[in-house]
């Protein structure tokens, strides 16, 4: 799966988790924390995204992502 596609899945899942962001204009540098997602929300988002990608990647690796773009990049690089 292309990195841009993964980024879009993350954006859609973020909107599903936090409906108040429906009209937000997402960028690669957006931090989930700054958007109002807590740790539970963030882990939930990672689970949802990996499921949609049908990828089985150790999730602990995702903790070092500082923003949505970095998260998409880690997922892109680690996918089988």
């Amino acid at each position: 799966m292309e990195q841009q596609q993964i980024f879009e899945i993350i954006v859609n899942n973020t909107k599903e988790l936090l409906p108040e962001l429906e009209s937000h204009n997402f960028s690669q540098s957006d931090s989930l924390r700054d958007l109002g997602a807590n740790s539970v929300d963030r882990s939930e988002l990672i689970m949802m995204t990996l499921e949609e990608m049908d990828a089985n990647i150790p999730m602990a690796q995702m903790a070092k992502a500082n923003n949505i773009g970095e998260l998409a990049q880690i997922m892109f690089e680690q996918q089988a």
Partner: peptide, 12 residues
Amino acid sequence: GDTDLSLLSYLD
């Protein structure tokens, strides 16, 4: 601690 890392490690 790093809550995110701990949560994700728990899940793994």
